[in-house]
């Protein structure tokens, strides 16, 4: 049975990449290289090291931005979840941010902070923060009342309730908020490299497009999507492993 699933996955990949290859051979557009050409370009960039240099550049604002968003976002989210007053004050901002096309802020950020790293970090932050804040806040608010009551009945101090009940109970949802934040952060990092200044992978994409080296362009895009998907899947697997019990612990039969 496990074999069948694996076979179908391979078959599915074969169909899609095969279609890509054939479409490239027809070709459907002068700007549509074949799958194999793109993979050859990717291999070339990997062997001459270009891709690693590019990723070192691209991942910098992503890592810094996600780290800032995680610390600030979880802090704010805890606060919003614990205090009604703070919820009233801050939650609407993040609720609106969650629904709004924040990419539209990029031109203003560029005006204020220029075209350097600061702007890019900012873009990653505004993309990643709302989901982290809102997930943390709702996780804190949804801590099972009976668990808090249980701790109170054993005379737990407020600090103990926060550290031993609320935080562990909220951590699965906080973690999945972080994962969604990283996902949004990837969008922000790439967007800022394409919109603000071409650096890193954005530079490969923009440059190879300008000299019509389409295989390299497709290879760079393929690699960044692959990287993002692999990393997010890894986070999800980690999440399932860490919080296995939490998800099923409340089901009473």
């Amino acid at each position: 049975m496990k074999n069948r699933s694996l076979m179908l996955k391979l078959l599915s990949a074969l169909i899609v990449f095969g279609a890509w290859e054939i479409a490239g051979h027809i070709p459907i557009s002068y700007a549509f290289p074949t799958f194999l050409e793109s993979m050859a370009a990717l291999a070339r960039m990997t062997f001459d090291g270009t891709i690693f240099v590019a990723y070192a550049e691209t991942l910098r604002p992503l890592v810094v931005g996600v780290a800032i968003s995680a610390v600030l976002g979880i802090g704010l989210g805890l606060w919003i979840g614990l205090s009604k007053g703070f919820e009233w004050l801050f939650a609407p901002i993040f609720i609106v941010m969650q629904a709004a096309p924040l990419a539209a802020l990029i031109p203003i950020l560029v005006m204020i902070y220029g075209i350097g790293l600061t702007s890019k970090v900012f873009v990653v932050c505004i993309m990643a923060m709302p989901v982290i804040v809102l997930n943390t806040a709702s996780a804190v608010r949804n801590t099972p009342a009976s668990l808090k009551e249980m701790a109170t009945s054993f005379m737990a101090a407020d600090r103990d309730v926060l550290l031993k009940i609320i935080l562990p109970a909220a951590s699965p949802v906080i973690f999945s908020g972080l994962r969604l934040g990283v996902s949004a952060g990837f969008i922000g990092a790439i967007l800022s490299e394409l919109k603000i200044t071409p650096t890193g992978v954005g530079d490969i994409i923009t440059y190879s497009r300008s000299i019509a080296d389409y295989p390299s362009m497709y290879a760079a895009i393929f690699s960044i999507i692959l990287l993002a998907v692999l990393f997010l899947n890894l986070l999800e697997a980690l999440e399932n492993m860490l919080f296995e019990g939490n998800n099923r612990g409340y089901v009473s039969d």
């Binding site: 899609v16 969008i187 990092a189 790439i190 923009t206 497009r209 999507i225």
Partner: peptide, 29 residues
């Protein structure tokens, strides 16, 4: 089931992929 097994991996990939990266491709195409 067969359709599901063929398509689901791709749906999941594109769901979490940074689709922004595809815009330059769309622009040239």
């Amino acid at each position: 089931r067969i359709l599901d097994e063929l398509l689901l991996p791709w749906v999941n990939i594109f769901l979490s992929a940074p689709l922004t990266a595809l815009v330059p491709v769309l622009m040239v195409l």
